[in-house]
C-alpha cells in the first residue's frame, strides 16, 4: 500500500520542478508578470533564465512567442483569468497559430482565488483554451501530476496550457501514471461514470463513488486531466456499458470538461450526461476556495445526489438537499 502524499499546491510543485529544470536545460526561460510565485533565491539561481516583465500579460505572450520562435521554451506565468481572457488574442495569434512551444502556467484556476472574487476567478479558461487548434490543455489533479506535466512538456512540440491552483490541495491516490493526453482510471464500476478534472473535482468524484457504493450504485471514476487532446478512446471504453455520465469541474457549465465530454459522446456514443459545474453566474458571495466549491455544489455530495436523481434511486444521506439544488438553478 502506497502512502498518499501530504496536500500541496500545484503551483508550488510546478515552480520547484521548473527551477530544477532551468539548471539542466538552457532552452528554458521563465517569464514572469510580477506574480510573486518565485522567491529571490529562485530568481537569483535562475540568472538570465528568469525575466520579470511586470504586469503586462499581452506583452508576456508576445515576447514568449518571439523567444519560442528563436528556439527557446518559455514558461510564462500569470493567473488563469488573465492568461485566458486579457491575453487571449496574443495566445491565439502569436502562440497557437504558429504552434510555438510556449508553456502557459496559469495559477488560480477555477475558484482557487476564493475570496479575491470574480475578477480573479477563471471559469471560462478551459473553454477558451481547448477550442484553440494546436493547444494542449491540462488540469493536473495534484502536485505529483503537475511535476509530471512539467517534465513531459519538454518533449511536447506545440503550445501548452496548464491550469494550476493556489493553495495546497489533496493528493490523488492512484498508481496510474500521469501521462498528458491519457485519462487516468481511478475506479471501476458498472452503473455510472464520473469524470472530473482538477484537484477538488477529481476528489469529489472519488468520494461520490464511495457514497454511491453505500447505496448500491457502482461508479467508474476517470481523471480526465487533459481536455485537449481529449482521450476519447478511454472515455468511450469506460462509458460503453452505462446509461449515465456525470462530469465534475470548476468551470462554468458551458465549454469546459462537461462540454468536451458531451461533444465526444454525442458524436460517437450518445449517452446521457449530467454536468456538475459552476452555475452560470458570477460568484455572488465571498468565501475561500473550499467554501465556494461547497456553496456552488461542486462537491461529492451533490455529485452523488445528481447520480441518484438521474438513476431514480434513493440518494445517500449527505448535506446536499433539494432546497440547495433549487437555489442554484
Amino acid at each position: 500500500m502506497t502512502t498518499i502524499p501530504a496536500p500541496a499546491a500545484t503551483r508550488h510543485a510546478y515552480r520547484d520542478r521548473l527551477m530544477r529544470l532551468l539548471q539542466q536545460d538552457p532552452r528554458l526561460i521563465c517569464l514572469d508578470t510580477d506574480t510573486g510565485l518565485f522567491s529571490p533565491d529562485d530568481i537569483s539561481a535562475a540568472g538570465d533564465q528568469y525575466v520579470n516583465l511586470g504586469i503586462a500579460e499581452h506583452n508576456l505572450m508576445g515576447m514568449a512567442a518571439g523567444l519560442a520562435a528563436c528556439g527557446r521554451m518559455p514558461f510564462v506565468n500569470t493567473m488563469a483569468a488573465f492568461a485566458s481572457a486579457r491575453a487571449l488574442e496574443a495566445v491565439e495569434l502569436d502562440i497557437a497559430y504558429p504552434a510555438l512551444p510556449v508553456r502557459i502556467m496559469a495559477t488560480h484556476g477555477g475558484l482557487a482565488a476564493g475570496h479575491l472574487g470574480p475578477t480573479h476567478h477563471a471559469l471560462a479558461d478551459l473553454s477558451a483554451m481547448r477550442t484553440l487548434p494546436t493547444m494542449t490543455v491540462v488540469v493536473p489533479a495534484d502536485a505529483a501530476a503537475t511535476e509530471a506535466v512539467v517534465e513531459q512538456s519538454l518533449d511536447l512540440p506545440g503550445p501548452l496550457y496548464v491550469r494550476l491552483g493556489r493553495k495546497a490541495t489533496p493528493a490523488i491516490d492512484t498508481d496510474e501514471p500521469m501521462i498528458i493526453g491519457r485519462a487516468q482510471l481511478l475506479r471501476r464500476g458498472t452503473d455510472v461514470v464520473l469524470v472530473g478534472c482538477g484537484p477538488y473535482p477529481v476528489a469529489a468524484c472519488v468520494e461520490a463513488a464511495q457514497l454511491l457504493s453505500e447505496c448500491g450504485v457502482s461508479a467508474t471514476v476517470l481523471n480526465m486531466h487533459t481536455l485537449r487532446p481529449l482521450d476519447t478512446e478511454t472515455l468511450l471504453a469506460a462509458t460503453a456499458q452505462v446509461s449515465l455520465v456525470v462530469t465534475v469541474e470548476e468551470h462554468w457549465r458551458s465549454g469546459g470538461l462537461g462540454g468536451a465530454v458531451c461533444e465526444a459522446l454525442c458524436e460517437e456514443q450518445p449517452t446521457r450526461v449530467v454536468r456538475i459545474a459552476m452555475p452560470e453566474k458570477f460568484a455572488d458571495i465571498a468565501g475561500g476556495h473550499e467554501y465556494l466549491l461547497d456553496h456552488y455544489g461542486i462537491s461529492a455530495a451533490r455529485t452523488a445526489a445528481a447520480v441518484c436523481a438521474a438513476l431514480d434511486t434513493d440518494a445517500p444521506h449527505t448535506p446536499w438537499t433539494d432546497e440547495k439544488e433549487r437555489e442554484l438553478s
Binding site: 508576445g62 518571439g66 523567444l67 528563436c70
Partner: peptide
C-alpha cells in the same frame, strides 16, 4: 508564416512590438 520571409502572422494591430522584444531578447541570450 507560410510565406518565406514572413516571421509572424500579423493583422490584428498591437502584436508586433512584443514579438520583436522576444526576438531581440532571444538574440541577446544566445
Amino acid at each position: 508564416r507560410a510565406v518565406p520571409g514572413v516571421e509572424a502572422a500579423t493583422g490584428s494591430l498591437g502584436h508586433g512590438l512584443a514579438l520583436g522584444c522576444g526576438f531581440a531578447l532571444a538574440a541577446r541570450l544566445d
